[in-house]
Design a protein around this nucleic acid. Sequence first.
DNA 1: CCCTCATGTAAGCATTGATAACATCGCAAA
DNA 2: TTTGCGATGTTATCAATGCTTACATGAGGG
Lengths: 200, 200
Amino acid sequence: MNARETYHHGSLRETLLEAAFETVDSKGVDAVRMRALARAAGVSSAAPFRHFPDRQVLLDAVAARAAEQLDRALDEAAAGCEDALTQFRAMTVAYVRFAAEHPALFELVHSTDAVHGGFLGEVNDERRLKLIALIIEGQNAGLIPETDPELIALTSEALTHGLARMFVDRHPRVRHLSSEDARRLALTATHLLQTGIGLS
Amino acid sequence: MNARETYHHGSLRETLLEAAFETVDSKGVDAVRMRALARAAGVSSAAPFRHFPDRQVLLDAVAARAAEQLDRALDEAAAGCEDALTQFRAMTVAYVRFAAEHPALFELVHSTDAVHGGFLGEVNDERRLKLIALIIEGQNAGLIPETDPELIALTSEALTHGLARMFVDRHPRVRHLSSEDARRLALTATHLLQTGIGLS
DNA sequence: CCCTCATGTAAGCATTGATAACATCGCAAA
DNA sequence: TTTGCGATGTTATCAATGCTTACATGAGGG
């Protein structure tokens, strides 16, 4: 499929999107070059612009796909869990892990440009709402004390996001951690916080 | 000093550095253009390369200056505080505040490229060591229970870094917060965490 | 006083994102 | 089946950018 016989490519948009996604994941956002993508798809350097008005729109599309992947990872992590609290913890771990394994994608999902553009912001919002819902659910089930859920969610998210960011930024203290170490760290840290919130 | 009569500029390096710093702070890293800086300094477009081998080195210099400014902010915040714990909290607030007020500079200080290049990494390390020292000092003074200081520092830093990042990323939940609100949030969040750690 | 070398200039290169004018072809309507 | 139109691809080209090379200038030490 890399070489092409027909004048029309057939699925250029998807091919470009996929290649851009891989490039971001493996080499970072800055490594995404319109001409390189075109060359890889066996197509002229102007062709991509038929499918993406400009580079930023392409990156937005990549960000959207990455957000889907992140959401899926969180859902899968929460799938096997019984109560709201366990789900909450599992999602925290999955979140940090995604950041550790796909730093560039994680960064792109939260990059101001893409988020401010609207649709991605809503996706992120939805993910957050899911977490708040879990907290409220936990409160209703008596698992979490009835403190301000907004504050709990915010603080918890800050801790999670911060841990994730430390992996993205190759923070010295987490740089050489194994995947399992990272998992334990996320659990321990959130546990520490949750002790403060009032969880057992 | 903007217009120049002499063939030699006299302080081109500093002028460029300052202009780049301002540009990063006000318009972001991507807005830094070598030619624009040269034009602003009233100098040919090749001149900057006499002082900075390439753009990245210039950005590294900007990052170093930003790191100094951040360190100064933290020191000033800690200056008036009595015990280690209060210092620790004040520095947390100052850290988040710096991120909120100078998002691009904050990002640059932690950008992987600049950090991985060595010297900036050491600056950041030093800042971290200062925090750990505070924790140990707090433990010695009986203000902080004798739990693993590494873990406490790491978790605390994750929370702080996460809060800071939320401002940088214009996170919806903090986007419309006033400076005072942000201060309170940082305090409340760290308090929540410190409750978990075992602080009063 | 002069001559060296740090610092500046002019010109140009390769690369990049983006656009405009033209080519090809799938597909639906006549 | 034919036609022709809109989606998609091509070629050629632009302006901007980072960076380099070869040359110019002049400040300051010997």
